[in-house]
Nucleic acid binder design. Structure first.
Lengths: 219, 219
DNA sequence: GTCTATACACTGATAGAC
DNA sequence: GTCTATCAGTGTATAGAC
């Protein structure tokens, strides 16, 4: 009865099984992301999924396994856009535009995921080791070297100023993610916890960040 | 020995001489910051403090109260530098230099605090309300308006390019804090989890961030 | 597959001796 | 102030009926 974990596909399951399994995953995602691994309760997940607590353990033997599944799905959601940008043959400016645009859209659809991933990763960095390999590292595909080379070329052509690929990537990701991850702090400090003001601020930053980064490396 | 009482360090004291309340606070700080509010165990805090579990409840009646104390101390540690920068009459470039320099130093001494604060704040944003008033908001002192005015003046003088105070502040804080908060991710993605490489990267960023921000707003 | 009932370890918190 | 002992509640996980 644990066949489905070994097979790692839904193709052998009936529609009924998949529905329950998906309902559990959706509920688990919600509860884990709000309460964290240690704060989440299997009872609450069961309630939210509209099923019995024992059924959770039937599908995902332990809380740990259920959590790992949720974490992996959350984490891998934010990887493809980074890879897609790195792989593309666009010039650097377009890469940045493409990434900021798409990342902020993704962030608007899933605002709680980065905070969730970062929180859990700080408590238990070993999770990353388990799910690595499924989410390719940049080094393995020489994507970082590729970007580095591209930057050098455009520097020679007089298009952009010198900057390491690591620093550029870190800047772009920091400027996109931090205002979402640290929302409660920034909203409090800058806008006296006014949610509407902060949403307007984030909306305004969509174009601002794009232009800011590009201008900052323009030769 | 009277010396130990005027020297602001524990290095001259034996464990028995250190007062119990401080020992508890130190232990609680360590455990809470590593495991989070829901993951922390009173037993572990008691063990780490070298005392009995019942004594925890004697000094801090509940786990919640102990946590709030730890959280407030952690949070307020990172506020003064922001205020100090905003209040000062330095020109914008020097403000940025001062802030980045001092914030990164503070961060090096307490690298796990921002992640802790952000994590707990995302789970329970109401904590901030409880400790506000003790940690002055920027709006209350018109510090944000002051910075905004200063920027306008320097724009007119042709020193810097136009940028809102909120965006500038957000950028500076993001570029300083995010690489620390998201360390496990960036270290994994950029440096294959090589800790030494990442530390070198952070060290290199100390000057880089300063110059990057200043260049980015230079007219 | 889904349920009820339950095992049983652990947690925060208190009572009471010293 | 500090300890031992213990309670009441809650948590994950399992057994077994259907």
């Amino acid at each position: 009865m644990w066949l489905k974990y070994i097979v790692n596909t839904y193709s052998f399951m009936t529609e009924h099984e998949m529905n329950t399994e998906q309902k559990i995953l959706d509920a688990a995602k919600e509860v884990f992301q709000q309460k964290g691994m240690t704060g989440a309760r299997m009872q609450e997940i069961a309630d939210k999924a509209g099923i019995n607590k024992a059924l959770l353990h039937y599908y995902y033997r332990t809380k740990d396994k259920l959590f790992e599944k949720v974490f992996e799905l959350a984490f891998s959601l934010f990887i493809p856009k980074v890879k897609e940008m790195m792989i593309s043959d666009k010039p650097v400016f377009e890469k940045i535009e493409f990434f900021v645009e798409n990342y902020l859209n993704l962030l608007q659809k899933h605002p709680y995921i980065p905070g969730f991933v970062i929180s859990e990763l700080n408590r238990n960095p070993e999770i990353l080791v388990k799910i690595i390999g499924k989410n390719i590292q940049l080094k393995e595909n020489n994507l970082l070297e590729k970007l580095e080379r591209q930057i050098s070329e455009e520097v020679v052509k007089g298009i952009i100023k010198p900057i390491s690929a690591e620093n550029l990537l870190t800047n772009v990701i920091s400027l996109c993610l931090f205002p979402i991850v640290a929302k409660p702090i920034l909203r409090g400090v800058l806008f006296e916890n006014d949610e509407k003001m902060y949403e307007a601020f984030l909306e305004q930053r969509r174009d601002f960040v794009k232009e800011y980064i590009i201008n900052s490396i323009k030769a």
